[in-house]
Nucleic acid binder design. Structure first.
Lengths: 371, 371
DNA sequence: TACGGTTCTGCAACCGTTACTGGAACGTCG
DNA sequence: CGACGTTCCAGTAACGGTTGCAGAACCGTA
């Protein structure tokens, strides 16, 4: 459908979709065409659009008129190639379907969007190998920076990969060797954990279990260390049980089963993550173990479930959206004027609720699991 | 609470490039350098790497050796610019922090990743204006396709923007005018809803409320229509109350308050979304209204909360990860061999649970199944 | 030796920008 | 009137790849 009458502008196939010009997908106009229409050099168009001072008023007029007439919009790809930056940020995380992660992404995306950056997301499915694959992928995509919530802080391949990365890195709730020069947005997990364990001890618990995820991540380690420190500093003898594993419902279930099967089950269980809590509660219901009566439960993530559960689940809350926003801000700071790696620590707050009650023996001597 | 990294050994800039050369961020090698090292033309390198047939074995050897020696990796940007495709997909959604959405993204990301595509996401925060802004943004980013979960199907600016889009579009749980030529991955909300309403009527409810989100989205409309159809087709007189609004905890709370304040409150409430359920349960607890006793509740999303709540919340479940995967597959199909828009409908399943019990007046007298 | 036919390889244009360089046009001043 | 400084703009080389095309090298055959 090409017309060739010799005179006038060539009508190309893409004009088929032109119609009245108000709708339909037209081919994008290039700078070249703007320049031709305005009868100036292509470089002048560039100067007008990028606000270069060497531009006279009449020329600016002509160029801008051509731009609006052709609905010209600069090509992001070409700009990125030329300028050496893509205005995009890669985010590697274990699993976006975890509401905690999703909140973090929400906060980060909003902050980055405000600065003109867009966010690429990849799930590592808690596999360190995927972590490093994704990091490599992002680098080949030429992202300007990365935000990472790694499955493991210790995977050699990932660390080696990170050393090769030449864009700023921000980790979320992780700690990396200093030579990687990563900024970090972390929570003060020790604070909330300390308060929670002290509370449990204060109301009479002497056998306390911690179900947690990988200790190759900061939250896993910090929570365990904090609990250990509190118990060691205590006058009374307290029996801790540590069950690290993965941040999954399955581990929550398995660990809870194991705990309840013990000859002397713990009187309190701390679940270090919302998925662990789900698994734990499921097993408690299965076995007819009553939360807040037979066993006390504390969760480290405050999700709707913990607030609405009957009895409400005592929780260590934190501002996850804020954590994501902070991570993005740290990255933006390094993207604009690289100031070197920084670490920002955000608070955690323990909220006691009915699920953290005195243990059975304190209340009247009912044997646990007598439901 | 901001702490600068001050501890540990200072790593100076010169250290970064020192060492044995096996780590640290080196400048990327370009094709030019590979060609020089292998002593062939730059175009030959390209042909070797892109699997062009016109390549002799010895040359392939030399080029590949140079590639590995320089750790060459092609520049994605340059490739994209030249080839006219970016291998990236934009996903616009209301709010990634909604677990349903997060699941959809999870499924979509995995499927796209498998095909070499990466995913850009932007939150519209339920604002149709942001929807259209994001769509425009993605187009200027030259994504190869888009997956959309729009805040509204009827926003004129968004629809106009969509008509301008020249890449394939897939909507998730939305329906668009046919001229936009969007593929669609949707759930059969009517099926689950029909089963749920029939169940409620069967156990004796005669005043049933539906709290739902925007009727400018497919799930909002379909659920309401399905409920209406069931009730109209019913012998007994059933009183429906429809409270559409937004998919937010706030609307869930406000609507529930309004319902409970009525002179004759409904005996059953259907919450059309997990955030609405959260708001609804919160108000019930606040007022001491007992779920499954004073009022029956059904939720349209099966989240951990509904399973674990006491009593468990009857739910209309669906495979959200599968929905995301399906959307991605529909898009991939159009990206590889454009076959025109398609629609895939996935099932929903109603799971009765204790929260959907006979209404109070029924339980005082005859047993529920006495009909 | 000349010739036609395959294989392989290099040249150069191109994708759509940006930024550097040089110089035209104009005004000012000695 | 000519040297010089401004102001403004065109030309062009990148950025890092891909690809059509022309031609070199090689082979077998007459």
């Amino acid at each position: 459908m090409t017309m060739r009458d010799g005179s006038g502008p060539e009508v190309t196939v893409s004009d088929m979709f032109g119609g009245d010009g108000s709708s339909g997908a037209r081919r994008r106009a290039s700078m070249r065409e703007v320049a031709d229409l305005a009868d100036v050099a292509i470089s002048s168009v560039s100067r007008v659009l990028s606000g270069h001072p060497d531009v006279s008023a009449p020329m600016r007029e002509r160029v801008l008129a051509a731009v609006t007439q052709l609905e010209y919009e600069p090509d992001f790809l070409a700009q990125s190639l030329r300028r050496g930056m893509t205005l995009s940020v890669g985010f590697v995380l274990a699993d976006i379907s975890n509401p905690l992660m999703a909140d973090i992404v929400l906060g980060a995306e909003a902050a980055l969007r405000g600065a003109g950056y867009s966010l690429l997301i990849m799930n590592s499915e808690n596999d360190p190998q995927l972590d490093s694959t994704h990091i490599r992928f992002f680098q080949s995509r030429r992202v300007d920076g990365m935000i990472l919530s790694l499955a493991s802080e210790q995977d050699p391949a990932t660390l080696e990969m990170l050393r090769q990365v030449d864009v700023p890195i921000v980790v979320v709730d992780r700690r990396l060797p200093p030579e990687i020069r990563a900024s970090a947005a972390v929570n003060d997990h020790a604070a909330g954990m300390t308060a929670a364990v002290r509370h449990l001890i204060a109301v009479g618990h002497r056998r306390i279990a911690l179900i947690t995820g990988s200790i190759e991540t900061l939250p896993g380690r910090e929570r365990m260390n904090a609990m250990r420190r509190v118990i060691e500093a205590q006058q009374e003898h307290v029996d801790p049980i540590y069950l690290p594993g993965s941040f999954s419902e399955e581990h929550g279930e398995a660990a809870t089963r194991q705990l309840l099967d013990r000859p002397a089950p713990p009187t309190a269980i701390i679940c270090g993550g919302n998925q662990l809590l789900v698994g734990c509660l499921r097993v408690c219901q299965e076995r007819g173990v009553q939360v807040g009566i037979d066993v006390s439960i504390v969760s480290t993530d405050d999700i709707p479930l913990s607030e609405l559960y009957q009895p409400p689940i005592a929780s260590i809350a934190r501002d996850t959206v804020g954590l994501g926003r902070t991570a993005a801000e740290l990255l933006l700071r390094r993207l604009t004027h690289d100031s070197g790696p920084e670490t920002v620590v955000l608070p955690t707050v323990f909220t006691p609720r009915a699920s953290a009650a005195p243990p059975p023996e304190q209340r009247g001597g009912l044997p646990p699991g007598a439901g």
